[in-house]
Design a protein around this nucleic acid. Structure first.
Length: 857
RNA sequence: GCCGAGGUGGCGGAACAGGCAGACGCGCUAGGUUCAGGACCUAGUGGCCAUUAUGGCUGUGCGGGUUCGAAUCCCGCCCUCGGCACCA
């Protein structure tokens, strides 16, 4: 009889249609089943899916489908992070309004996602650039504003001359714009901020609840928040009496202060030098220093520079008058922008002091050597005994710190304090394609928030010119800017800055719950039902930005009484990066794989030998993957299987064409194996009796089934190492092949089990095989198989026999054999007894069911 | 410099809790099948030495240690990757 051919294209199309027609993945809000909210980071609609999406969404999809089979009401929504630079850049370049561009891209990408077989609940689809979404982003901004958490201040900012906009510190990498690579400049602008610094400690404390997060993400966030304990000490400018507090983590070195350093941005500088003979020199040096952007100056290898202001400060602990300098390594954005300098015990101060011949005073003496300031080649930063330190002489420096803080407090010189590196979140962007800030400026009333009823403040659909000219392109759009004051009705102007897109993505997980709600950003009942997110998946690149912002947002929403939890997602899974071989020709640089003769490998253009490396897919290295091409050639099931089959998903994934073919071959073999047995097994029920009553191949295959179930379930539920789960499926497939004498019921059990365990990974072919087997219902709703412990029991086990730790044989013994019996069996092995000849047995170790080790002399 | 993760065949990777290293897959080799290619089937596949066999030696980055027994635990190095980096 002719067997049904394996036609993956037809099968995949059929089931995708089936799922869509039946709203299979639309999650009801009123199910009796336990809920499982599976959130996966939504994409920017750039035009086409890229390889990274293939990996990321396959991982979340496998979780979705397996949880569903385990009896959960699973919700996995999808949406679009559709505001932001790429669409706007395309608009500047090609003149297409971002709104149209985004809509077209979404259409294309939604189709690709469908063809990949991902089980998203499209009824909850959102796009952050849709007025129905950004209305509520604005509403939330106003809540922040009303509570003093959104505010404007003049601040030195990172200015990208190419993007013509301000970028956040996090978006500056090595002094360059993260998006376009241009050198960042420094500039002073009125900007909107969110008061994130106020939440620094809570963001740290919250980590305790994030038990399902990778450690590396937690530690990156801890570093980013940068908590340090120390003291605030009240210095004063000697000449003017201006207070000049400093933050220090080393109050034990206070008596060793020999000068002070100010950040070049420090506002006091102008005041102190104005009209003095040092004004010109100081201000020109300061201006020079300020030219280098904030973040560029933070690069460690910059040479230390400074200039004396002509003024002095008074050290409160000893009344000493020490010179006040401006130093390029002092940062206005950390602490108070002023640093007490202790060259003997701080490396930076030491280098500065040596360069400008400033005095060095030792106040911590180590036990084993006597420090001499003239002989020192580096600062001494370790423990020692305090000297020249007034009331604290003779104390161990680190132990004395709490007492020193108390002393400062009692004498009103300062106090113990905690400082954080985390700064307020700068959310203003001078761009068109973002959420407008709902604020109006009125000559009479000043800054006025737009009333809730007037939301959303709509972006104009198109502009004459999208290019920013140092301010938002919206500023040139009269129809947008001109408005009436909501308070007095008089003529007024709208804020033209738009909101950082990281704000959009800080609450999208809540909007999915009420995607079409016109009355509120989210319905508290649905929040109560679905939140928190049970599993969040996404890339590690968001560790310190998005993943801090969305936690901060959630804490604020909690404090405003809008949600009843503080951590949005206690479980986070970060996938690795997708890598593929890239080829490099000495003459033609990076080569596309089609231009490489892989036998050499040599360059097809010039015949030169090419080097190759397995590296992150990127356009520059020409090793990208086009999802359309691979979906068409291999099908979604094979791609999904290949992606997950070799490497644990939290590691970098090597993409391999051979692996892809191998995955396809396995699926085809499975297809034919099931179909060839179909006549025999279709009409029988899978074996459900007592496995211990089985014999021979039936017994062996039944054991293989339950071993696969036990082991694969653990892989799915605990480690998410789908590669080992897939290995169990392969093993079970091999076991079926070996069990030639197995009866139809056991055979059916084995094939059903294979199909079920594989169903989350390669869902289309498994759906079709399930229906060929005439299984109950559809495989997406088949119950996840359970392990029957009885099937795992054995009468006999094979035990390894070692002589002095070296493997010399194996013997079969009854599983419940006594130690003596096992020993006896071990000694009866020919090869073992040969190694015992002429030796004295010192002792014998028996590990039941595993091995015997006979130690000889 | 600081913090973290890791180093196992030609490759991706297994190894529960200190107990048979290399599961599973890819690749490769030989044979079968096929007009041919592909697919499929069978056997083999860490290295070295033997092949009288159910054999021996060696082997998880390097050097020590603990133990009857170490990829796994301890000490000291080396290397790779990731994060942070003038944060007072």
């Amino acid at each position: 009889m002719a067997v049904q051919e394996y036609d993956f294209k037809a099968i995949e199309a059929k089931w995708q249609q089936h799922w869509e027609d039946n709203d299979t993945f639309v999650a009801p809000d009123d199910s009796a089943l336990p809920k499982f909210y599976c959130l996966t980071m939504y994409p920017y609609p750039s035009g086409v899916l890229h390889a990274g999406h293939l990996l990321a969404y396959t991982i979340s999809d496998v979780i979705v489908r397996q949880k569903r089979m385990q009896g959960f009401n699973v919700m996995c929504p999808m949406g679009w992070d559709s505001f932001g630079l790429p669409a706007e850049n395309a608009a500047i370049k090609e003149g297409v309004p971002p709104k149209e561009n985004v809509a077209a891209n979404i259409e294309v990408m939604r189709g690709q996602m469908r063809r990949a077989g991902w089980a998203f609940d499209w009824s909850r689809e959102i796009a952050t650039s849709h007025p129905g979404y950004y209305k509520w982003t604005q509403w939330l901004f106003l809540k922040f504003y009303e509570n003093g958490l959104a505010f404007k201040k003049r601040a030195p900012v990172n200015w990208c001359p190419s993007c013509q906009t301000v970028v956040a510190n996090e978006q500056v990498v090595a002094g360059r714009c993260e998006r376009c690579g241009t050198d960042i400049e420094q500039s002073d602008l009125e900007q909107w901020f969110f008061k994130m610094s106020a939440y620094a400690q809570r963001l740290l404390d919250g980590h305790e609840q994030l038990t399902g997060w990778p450690d590396r993400v937690i530690s990156m966030q801890k570093e980013w928040i940068g908590r340090s304990e120390g003291a605030r000490v009240e210095f004063k400018v000697a000449e003017t009496g201006d207070p000049l507090p400093v933050f220090t983590t080393r109050p034990d070195t206070l008596w060793g202060v020999t000068f002070m350093s100010l950040a070049p941005e420090h506002p006091l500088i102008e005041k102190l030098v104005r009209g003095t003979e040092r004004e010109d020199e100081v201000m020109s040096t300061v201006r020079d220093m300020r030219k280098l952007g904030t973040s560029e100056r933070e690069m460690a290898d910059l040479e230390k520079r400074g200039v004396w202001t002509g003024c002095h400060v008074i050290n409160p602990v000893n009344g000493e008058k020490v010179p006040l300098w401006v130093a390029n390594f002092a940062l206005m954005t950390y602490g108070t922008g002023a640093v007490m300098a202790v060259p003997a015990h701080d490396q930076r101060d030491f280098e500065f002091a040596r360069k400008y011949e400033l005095p060095i005073r030792v106040v911590i003496q180590p036990e084993d050597l006597a420090l001499d300031p003239d002989q020192m080649t580096e600062a001494y930063v370790d423990a020692g005994v305090m000297v020249n330190s007034g009331p604290f002489d003779g104390r161990n420096n680190f132990e004395a710190i709490p007492d020193i803080c108390q002393y400062l407090d009692e004498h009103e010189m300062g106090e113990a304090t905690v400082n954080y590196r985390l700064r307020d979140w700068l959310i203003s962007r001078q761009r068109y394609w973002g959420c407008p800030i709902p604020i109006v400026y009125c000559d009479e009333c000043g800054e006025v928030p737009v009333p809730e009823d007037d939301l959303p403040v709509r972006l104009p659909d198109r502009l004459d010119d999208y290019a920013p000219q140092g301010k938002s392109p919206l500023a040139a759009c009269d129809e947008f800017v001109r408005t009436n004051c909501p308070r007095c009705g008089g003529p007024s102007r709208r804020e033209t800055d738009t909101i950082d897109t990281f704000v959009d993505s800080s609450w999208y997980f809540l909007r999915y719950l009420s995607a079409r709600n016109d009355e509120a950003p989210f319905d508290p009942k649905k929040v109560g039902m679905w939140m928190p997110v049970d599993q969040y998946t996404g890339g590690i690149e968001h560790a310190t930005m998005h993943l801090i912002y969305f936690r901060f947002f959630t804490m604020v929403l909690h404090d405003l009484g809008l949600v009843n939890f503080t951590e949005p997602a206690p479980n986070l899974f970060c996938q690795g990066m997708l890598c593929k071989t890239a080829y490099y020709c000495p003459r033609h640089k990076w080569l596309h794989e089609d231009d490489v003769d892989r036998d050499g490998p040599t360059c097809c253009k010039c015949g030169s030998e090419v080097s190759s490396e397995m590296t992150k897919v990127s356009k520059t290295k020409l090793n990208t993957i086009d999802p359309d091409v691979v979906l068409n050639e291999h099908g979604a099931d094979a791609i999904r299987l290949m992606i997950l089959s070799d490497t644990p998903p939290d590691r970098d994934q090597p993409w391999s064409e051979e692996g892809l073919e191998g995955a396809g071959r396995f699926l085809r073999r499975l297809w034919y194996a099931v179909h060839e047995n179909l006549d025999a097994i279709k009409k029988v029920a899978p074996f459900e009796g007592d496995p211990s009553a089985l014999e021979g191949d039936d017994r062996e295959l039944c054991r293989a089934v339950h071993e696969a179930i036990r082991s694969a379930t653990e892989d799915y539920d605990q480690t998410r190492h789908f590669n080992t789960a897939i290995a169990r499926v392969f093993e079970l497939t091999n076991a079926v092949k070996s069990a030639k004498e197995a009866g139809p019921e056991i055979l059916r059990l084995a094939y059903e089990t294979i199909v079920k365990i594989l169903a989350p990974i390669s869902p289309h072919v498994c759906a079709e095989l399930w229906s060929a087997l005439e299984g109950e219902g559809v495989v997406v709703d088949a119950p996840w198989p359970e392990c029957d412990e009885r099937a795992l029991e054995r009468e006999e086990v094979e035990v390894a026999v070692q002589v002095s730790g070296k493997l010399r044989g194996r013997v079969r013994v009854p599983v419940d054999a006594a130690e003596d019996e096992v020993k006896e069996a071990a000694l009866s092995d020919d090869n073992v007894s040969r190694h015992l000849e002429g030796k004295e047995v010192v002792k014998t170790i028996v590990v039941p069911g595993r091995l015997v080790n006979i130690v000889v002399r």
